[in-house]
């Protein structure tokens, strides 16, 4: 059982990193991303292919994957340069996400299509014995998660963090104050993209096998759910949000034993219905989430 908990905790870690990326782009920067699933796939595939075809080691492959997703996100932000309207931006991200998934599915020569990529190398996979590897991977994931939170906290408290929040609240005002809106948006989205790339790389290390079916659109709902439950803009909260979502998902598998009339198809449907309703309920009743965004505190004495 302990081993299983370790595995689930690892999944929670990289889901949390993914949710943090969304939180950064949307929660802090106000740039909604409906292409999460496709970009996540891009990160995972980039990392795996850099190792399998490019011969890179795990460290450089991860960095490469982060750079590639960041670049893709930067381009998305650039294409929408003339319309800073969120509506259009959201639709573009949705379309790009779909397209990336199609590429992963159809470009056999590169991604092996529906067959997927197997035998993905893991960091220090040769050095550490298989029976201890899961502990190492959990440790690595926790460390990377902590590093991501630290990095995002630093950014959120920096001058750039203030620009981001200004953009989120009203980009016209930000522009009037002399902030370069387009460049800031590109940076916000690209940094978020790099974090998606990191989460994707970990996904590959964990499963060691990736195929296009792992990146269905429900990934988007999970990430949004984690961000909203955790509290938009609150990094630590998002980790709890991701943990709650994963526990809900895994926990609902035990529902089968409680309600024997339902077959698994129906359970899968119910699980997604619960996620969807939960998303709406949170938006309606607790839009601020369960944790608060960081605010600069000044002690008056």
């Amino acid at each position: 059982m302990i081993s299983f908990l370790i595995l689930i905790s690892t999944v929670v870690c990289f889901s949390a990193i993914l949710a943090l990326a969304l939180n950064f782009q949307w929660g802090l920067g106000g740039m909604v991303n409906f292409g999460m699933a496709g970009l996540y796939a891009l990160g995972t595939y980039s990392c795996a292919l850099l190792m399998l075809k490019g011969g890179a080691n795990t460290f450089f492959a991860t960095l490469g994957a982060m750079a590639i997703v960041a670049a893709a996100c930067g381009v998305i932000a650039l294409v929408t340069l003339r319309v800073t309207e969120e509506d259009y931006f959201a639709i573009v991200t949705l379309g790009v996400g779909e397209m990336l998934r199609l590429v992963a599915l159809n470009e056999d020569w590169l991604t092996k299509g529906a067959l997927g990529l197997t035998g993905i190398p893991r960091p220090l996979g040769d050095v550490i014995a298989p029976e201890y590897y899961q502990y190492f991977l959990l440790g690595l994931s926790v460390a990377l998660l902590a590093g991501t939170v630290w990095f995002l906290n630093v950014i959120a408290r920096s001058p750039f963090g203030r620009i981001m929040r200004a953009l989120r609240e009203d980009d016209v005002v930000a522009a009037t104050l002399g902030k370069h809106v387009l460049w800031a948006r590109v940076r916000i989205f690209a940094i978020g993209g790099a974090i998606i790339g990191l989460a994707g790389s970990l996904h590959g290390f964990y499963y060691q096998y990736i195929d296009p079916t792992q990146f269905s659109n429900i990934v988007i709902a999970y990430a949004f759910m984690a961000v909203i439950a955790g509290g938009r803009g609150a990094h630590q909260g998002v980790i709890w949000g991701a943990a709650v979502v994963m526990v809900l998902l895994e926990g609902s598998r035990f529902m089968k034993d409680l309600i024997p009339v339902l077959d698994s198809d129906q359970l899968a449907a119910i699980r997604i219905i619960i996620i969807g309703i939960g998303l709406i309920l949170l938006l309606v009743f607790r839009p601020q989430g369960f944790m608060r965004e960081y605010r600069l505190q000044v002690n008056f004495k």
Partner: peptide, 19 residues
């Protein structure tokens, strides 16, 4: 944005009611 996210959630709910 909030409305879009809500519509995303609603989409998942409706499709899976059919499922």
């Amino acid at each position: 944005i909030t409305l879009m996210v809500a519509s995303l959630g609603l989409g998942f709910v409706l499709e899976n009611i059919a499922r």
